[in-house]
Amino acid sequence: MKRPGKIVPFVSALLVAAFVGSVFSLNGVEAARGNQATLEEILYIPSAKALKRMSLGYSGVLADIYWTRAVQYYGRKLSTRRGDLRYDLLYPLLDITTDLDPHLIVAYEFGSIFLSQRPPVGAGQPDKAVALIEKGIRANPDYWRLYFNLGFIHYFDRKDPRAAQQAFEKGSENPKSLVWMKTMAANMAEKANDPETALYLWGRLYESTTDEMVRQNARQHIAALHVDHDVSELQRRVKMYLERKGHLPSNWYEMMHEGLITRVPLDPTEKPYKLMPDGTVQVEDPDSFPFVTQGLPPGWKKSTKPQ
């Protein structure tokens, strides 16, 4: 019987070399397959009913796997933001997830946010988001926060304050719901176009979630609403200056001297707003405010770089 001699170091070196080679070749395989090829596989079995039977009763675990895949799918799209940004598989993934586990609240709450927001940060499919939330409400009628999500989508993404009001009212009928659901319903009826209403809604979403991604999203929307408000207000005061002095101010100090502002105005990131020679007001770094509608340089396009 021959004993190990020089073979052990040789095989050890071979093992390391082959493993390193396998890592490189796997990277090559993934590059050759591309994103789409790998993602199509996640819907290899597109029927939740079939999946449920195949899970042999472990449908909860399978739902968790599908939910993780939905988050990964969304997160990967969001972080790469390359080329034609489509979220075609997002709704089927969420639909299967919630078929497998109809009580997986997180899938309805966050999934509807992923679906409803405009591209590039979301799929821009508010109708599908509504369908998902309504499915969640049917399966979990006692969970009042889903009505909040429903009203939220109707108000912001479907621009339908009437439907939003109905959703908030319905949710407020639940004895467990918080009192501001009634306030929201009233606001929808009376001052749907008031920016304060939007600010209030985003504030409630910010407070009600512990997920950092949703919080950041809410933070960005709140910041955008503040910027929109600031820019409108500052431009109104620039106009006042023009009417008083007959020419545009060349800097903020001239306006301070006139008592129209008390200090150099700062945006939510603490950077000063820019006063342009034509009297318009712009933000210093538009990329910091993905949802602003005012204060952007003319012709500026949203950056594709990940934030």
Partner: peptide, 9 residues
């Protein structure tokens, strides 16, 4: 290449 190298490992 991947299958050969991984199985070799």
């Amino acid at each position: 290449l991947y299958a050969l190298l991984y199985s070799l490992t």
